[in-house]
């Protein structure tokens, strides 16, 4: 997924000054496709970056935007949502609902100062272990370039016109 926020030359320069940064990524995977792809990557002994921690949900449609915000609020540098390909949802169309929320959430994140590339939605079927590995590594690398998530401190004083 190409991303406008990802200015690699700036980011690389930024990383060079910092001690090595290991991104912390939380993933919400549906039970029927992406979680199984992760299992298949395991049984196929594929190797990938160890930065992603998986929370299993039955369907990507279960992923409440609050889960994503909660993960960012508690220190995640990136959040990955994995579901079945369009048309393949075990529950017929939960993944479309996930997509709808994802689009809206991505716009919101931008407004909150969180780079859009930190949130990603991927369709990975149960047989796509190779693709799964690629997504995991790619996600980690992209977030690594962005650096640690720094949330803006909450404004304690409202601008006057708002306070009135």
């Amino acid at each position: 997924m190409p991303d406008a926020n990802l200015n690699s030359s700036q980011a690389v320069a930024h990383v060079a000054e910092q001690p090595p940064f290991e991104p912390r990524i939380v993933a919400f995977f549906c039970n029927w496709c992406t979680y199984l792809a992760a299992d298949l990557a395991g049984t196929s002994r594929m190797k990938y970056a160890p930065n992603v921690r998986v929370v299993r949900v039955m369907c990507s449609g279960r992923v409440d935007p609050q889960f994503v915000l909660d993960a960012f609020a508690h220190g995640a540098d990136g959040v990955l949502i994995g579901g079945c390909h369009p048309g393949d949802c075990h529950y017929q169309e939960g993944n479309y609902k996930a997509l709808r929320r994802f689009r809206l959430l991505k716009r919101m994140l931008g407004q909150m100062g969180i780079e859009e590339a930190r949130l990603r939605l991927e369709w990975i079927s149960a047989s796509e272990a190779e693709r799964f590995r690629w997504v995991m590594n790619d996600m980690v690398e992209r977030v690594r370039i962005l650096g640690p998530l720094r949330l803006l401190p909450a404004k304690e004083v409202f601008p006057e016109e708002v306070a009135v």
């Binding site: 929370v55 409440d64 995640a76």
Partner: peptide, 16 residues
């Protein structure tokens, strides 16, 4: 898969 259960799990993953 209650909200609270998933919040706890997520926060547990991140609380180093």
């Amino acid at each position: 898969f209650e909200d609270e259960e998933i919040f706890e799990e997520t926060e547990g993953l991140l609380a180093y």
